[in-house]
């Protein structure tokens, strides 16, 4: 198995996922199967292949540097859990 409980805990923490203790055994097994499956790719010789950055064989389109947006703060903030004086409020962030 390519993953262990410590690694899965780390991944869960990074993804802000809370797993119950009994969920770990099956998570380790299932995620390891996925990683092992994808790992087969590393057996292919890719020395002559340029790393792919995007599945589409195209280049990024660019837009002119112009302001096209209008002020829609009130509408956008209807979705927010809490706002005050135009600010989005979140639980206190302590540095």
């Amino acid at each position: 198995m390519s993953l262990d409980k410590v690694k899965v805990q780390h991944i869960a923490m990074l993804a802000r996922l809370k797993l119950a203790d009994e969920e770990y055994a099956s998570s380790v097994e299932k995620l390891s199967r996925i990683v092992d499956f994808v790992d087969q790719l590393s057996q292919a010789d890719t020395s002559d292949v340029r790393p792919m950055a995007h599945p589409l064989d195209a280049a990024q389109r660019l837009r002119p540097d112009a302001v096209t947006e209008t002020v829609e703060r009130d509408r956008y903030q209807q979705n927010a859990a809490a706002v005050s004086d135009g600010l989005y409020l979140v639980p206190k962030v302590i540095e």
Partner: peptide
């Protein structure tokens, strides 16, 4: 020193009212 943001058409002017230059 652009007029609009790197990936959107919102203004980059300094000192605006909070969240009036934040688009979707």
């Amino acid at each position: 020193a652009t007029t609009s943001k790197i990936f959107s058409g919102a203004s980059t002017a300094y000192g605006a009212e909070p969240n009036t230059q934040a688009c979707l």
